[in-house]
């Protein structure tokens, strides 16, 4: 993981917060494959630390996390003026209705229900980044690049 300042980045940086390593790495690999820079965090505290440290363009937040869960982390990030602008996509593993509601209340900008194919995730991330582009001038058109090959069986 190479730390990079926001200004220096060519590709949008996605912070993937997920406690399940296989899934985290799978998303990370695919996002990188899809042209993003990726940082990873395994719990809520780490997610807050990494966000402050790296100032990612977008955070992919699993809600069920050890030590500090996704809601709490989201709440803190959204109440912090420094990180408030960063869009957060919640990954709601429990598709139970309460989770989605909770995610919205906590300040998530969007949510994706797990299981979620990497493609769908990429699509949602791109959508959100496009929405936030005016805020992040330096993000430029970098996210809109290399391979977005959509293949479905």
């Amino acid at each position: 993981m190479k730390p990079a300042s926001t200004t220096a980045r060519e590709q949008p940086l996605v912070l993937v917060v997920e406690d399940y390593q296989d899934a985290r790495e799978m998303y990370a690999a695919y996002l990188q494959f899809s042209g993003f820079e990726v940082a990873e965090a395994g719990n809520g505290i780490e997610a807050i630390d990494k966000t402050h440290e790296l100032m990612p363009d977008i955070v992919l937040m699993d809600l069920a996390l050890p030590r500090m869960d996704g809601w709490e982390a989201t709440k803190r990030l959204k109440s912090d003026p420094r990180t408030r602008h960063i869009p957060i996509v919640a990954l709601t593993g429990h598709a139970l209705a309460g989770h989605a509601e909770g995610a919205r209340e906590a300040g998530c900008d969007a949510f994706v229900t797990k299981p979620c194919l990497p493609d769908a995730l990429v699509t949602e991330i791109k959508r959100l980044l496009d929405l936030h582009r005016p805020n992040a001038e330096n993000a430029k058109d970098g996210a809109r690049t290399p391979k977005a090959s959509k293949k479905r069986s």
């Binding site: 399940y20 296989d22 899934a23 799978m26 998303y27 690999a29 695919y30 494959f33 069920a64 593993g93 429990h94 139970l96 797990k114 299981p115 979620c116 194919l117 990497p118 493609d119 090959s149 293949k151 069986s153």
Partner: peptide, 26 residues
């Protein structure tokens, strides 16, 4: 059941994801 299905889906999510990646020549 809710928990279990969640627990089912976590690995399934990984299976689907990796398969997808493989199929996409990642």
């Amino acid at each position: 059941l809710a928990n279990m299905s969640h627990e089912f889906r976590t690995p399934l999510n990984a299976i689907l994801g990796y398969t997808h990646m493989l199929l996409n020549n990642v």
